[in-house]
Design a protein around this nucleic acid. Structure first.
Lengths: 204, 204
DNA sequence: TGCTTATGAATGAAGG
DNA sequence: CCTTCATTCATAAGCA
């Protein structure tokens, strides 16, 4: 049976058992990291590691193999992806902040709507940050990470704070529904029923 | 009972808290597109748009936010999924074809309609422009200036990614179809129950 | 009301 | 580094 962490994240029962070995029809296709592996990788990432060198990758991979099957390339990809997605996420969240205004305006539902939105938003940007006080994640990517990381025995992952394990997504943004307490102005409303979408410029 | 906003977005108190109320890590539900949003997205898809650029995603998201809460990542995912599933479906059909004589009448109704957008879609997708804030600058990296500071030769050049990968592919011994015989290589453990990861060595 | 389906979200792996 | 694809996880919706 599957197991769920406090965060609701499902941990499949047949991790790291090897390819054909498991009775649970585990597909050999791709690496399926154990939660411990993810935890360690995340920890390293949070500590500042972004683009590990080949040597580092080897070491990490070697160490993580304690928790289950893993190859160096998995570690390599993991960092690539994690870095890229964090960046992407950050980029998107920033832009989305501006757009949310339109929605709020709309929820009144009998809109006369607007043609051009000159919006003045200013607050609220500080909401979208995860509580990582420690690490502002500078743009300069490669810093040195000098630290000794203690890995934990297998059974220790049950601790409820595995919640933190997920820096999950930009859900921060979603959750503003109740306390949307920022100011916005919409100026220059004219007369149309809905915005129109013109992508012609982009198509060429 | 659950509660719905005007946009159809479900705010449910599930899983200990709901959006604003909970403390750490409460996940609110996922994006639930309004029918108008789906309609527009589908229309765009049918008109041939498959992989919108970041810029397009922004525009679309921005416009669709009129109809309800939406983030650009939703748009991103939507196209990703829609495209993937269309492909998947097509593949499935192909397999079915080659596989056996199906009941002929069976699949007729779910023939993928993808190749025919002969219809004039004219909704309101291309009627107006909105302030043409298009950036002539092709890349969006206006705020990032990487590459400028390579302080130390410590961590290898980023460029060697492919090279790295090649190296990594050397630890192929896993994932044999039949014998899942991978070996843990734990080094230097005497009797501790977990390995220790020390990256300091890597930096010298 | 419990199971099935549809689909949003995530992420491993590449390609370029 | 960026983008894309395949696959999987998770959950809301739909149905029997």
């Amino acid at each position: 049976m599957d197991e769920y962490t406090a965060s609701g994240y499902c941990i499949r029962a047949s991790r790291g058992g090897g390819c054909g070995g498991g009775g649970t029809g585990t597909k050999c296709g791709r690496w399926n990291p154990t939660s411990e592996q993810v935890k360690v990788l995340t920890e390293l990432f949070r500590s500042g590691l972004r683009t590990p060198s080949t040597d580092q990758i080897q070491k990490i991979s070697s160490q993580l193999s304690f928790y289950g099957k893993i190859e160096s390339k998995n570690v390599f990809y993991w960092f690539q992806n994690h870095k890229a997605r964090e960046r992407q996420k950050r980029r998107r969240v920033l832009v989305d902040d501006g757009n949310e205004i339109m929605h709020l305006h709309h929820t009144n539902n009998l809109v006369s709507s607007t043609k051009r939105f000159d919006l003045v938003f200013n607050v609220d940007l500080m909401l979208t940050d995860f509580g990582d006080e420690k690490n502002p994640v500078s743009e300069t990517d490669d810093q040195r990470v000098i630290e000794t990381l203690q890995l934990f025995p297998l059974n220790s992952l049950n601790d409820a704070d595995s919640e933190k394990l997920r820096l999950f997504s930009s859900d921060h943004n979603n959750c503003k529904e109740n306390n949307a307490s920022f100011t916005y102005n919409i100026i220059g409303t004219t007369e149309m029923d809905h915005p129109t979408l013109d992508l012609r410029l982009s198509f060429v």
